[in-house]
Design a protein around this nucleic acid. Structure first.
Length: 307
DNA sequence: CTAGGGGTAAAT
DNA sequence: ATTTACCCCTAG
């Protein structure tokens, strides 16, 4: 009983996801040998990768092979997806050797707002400020009004309201917002502390902080994203684009939440990195595959003219 | 080597 | 007390 336990870091998870994207699920040894990921995953065995992937994939999906089908009061107030692809998993025999960075992909018809895979990350802070400013309501705006404004202009993520509430509370506590009864106003001393996500990704380096305590306020549902990732191969271009857009949105949400925990933000920030890494990887996957049969089922016309 | 079963420390 | 998730074991 030598090893007490070694929790997976967000970096490792990100590397694993990226590895699965690149080589496919099941090619654990291949992923492990890839110099791109060996720097992060050199402590893990191929079995570890497989187990971790199972754990991550199982959560939302429920019974993948484990977990008892107990009643999960997962009150999803709005529909999630209409296509139910039961247990079809990724089955690819070829690895795309593309990483030729092209340009951000223009999605047609998708719900992609100002999604820019570059370094343009929209911050919830700014969104809130923008909302309050634009609403121009005397005395400030209610939380619901702010939420509506943001939701109309941007993305409608899963637990956006939760993040917004926490964010508002945080901003008030830090004096950036003033809460007047139930309305929020912008404080004068709005000197924003720029806190960016560290630009370094997984690239041959070792873990820096053991970090025993994982302050886990689950902001993003990685597992769900993973499922989506698996399904992307069988999706139409529009569907895949939508999924990718949501991935980016969640990455941004994670970043916003990261600064909320300014103290022990280490883990949250790492989560944000992981999400962002996934989002970029998702983009590349879509871009990389030269869609053989990506055709609209109904019309039969090829709907991918620029992928 | 991978997939799946199972045990159990740690977290809630 | 129950759930989570890391790790080991073994058949194919």
């Amino acid at each position: 009983m030598g090893a007490p336990k070694q929790k997976w870091t967000a970096e490792e998870e990100a590397a694993l996801k990226a590895g699965v994207i690149k080589h496919g699920a099941g090619k654990w040894r291949t992923i492990l040998k890839d110099p791109e990921f060996s720097g992060v995953l050199y402590l893990r065995s191929n079995v570890d990768l497989k187990d971790k992937w199972r754990n991550m994939s199982v959560m939302v999906n429920g019974y993948g092979s484990r977990e008892k089908p107990k009643l999960a009061p997962k009150r999803a107030h709005h529909i999630h997806r209409q296509d139910e692809n039961p247990m079809a998993f990724v089955n690819l025999g070829q690895s795309d050797e593309d990483i030729p960075d092209a340009k951000p992909l223009p999605v047609s018809g998708a719900v992609m707002p100002a999604v820019n895979p570059k370094r343009t990350t929209v911050r919830l802070d700014n969104l809130i400020m923008e909302a309050i400013t634009s609403l121009k309501e005397p005395g400030g705006s209610h939380k619901t009004a702010i939420a509506s404004y943001i939701e109309e202009q941007y993305w409608p993520p899963n637990d956006f309201k939760r993040i917004l509430s926490a964010k508002l509370k945080y901003l008030v506590a830090n004096g950036k917002l003033i809460k007047d009864k139930r309305k929020y106003r912008i404080a004068r001393t709005s000197a924003f502390a720029e806190r960016r996500v560290s630009p370094l990704f997984f690239e041959g380096r070792q873990r820096i902080s053991p970090k025993i305590e994982r302050d886990d306020f689950n902001i993003l549902t990685m597992s769900q994203i993973d499922l989506d990732l698996g399904r992307m191969r069988t999706m139409t271009a529009e569907q895949a684009a939508e999924v990718a857009a949501r991935a980016v949105a969640e990455a941004e949400a994670a970043i916003a939440a990261a600064e909320e925990a300014a103290r022990e933000a280490e883990t949250a920030e790492a989560d944000a990195e992981a999400a962002q890494a996934f989002a970029e990887a998702a983009m590349k996957t879509m871009k990389g595959r030269t869609a053989p049969k990506m055709v609209n089922f109904i019309t039969g016309s090829p709907l991918n003219d620029r992928f």
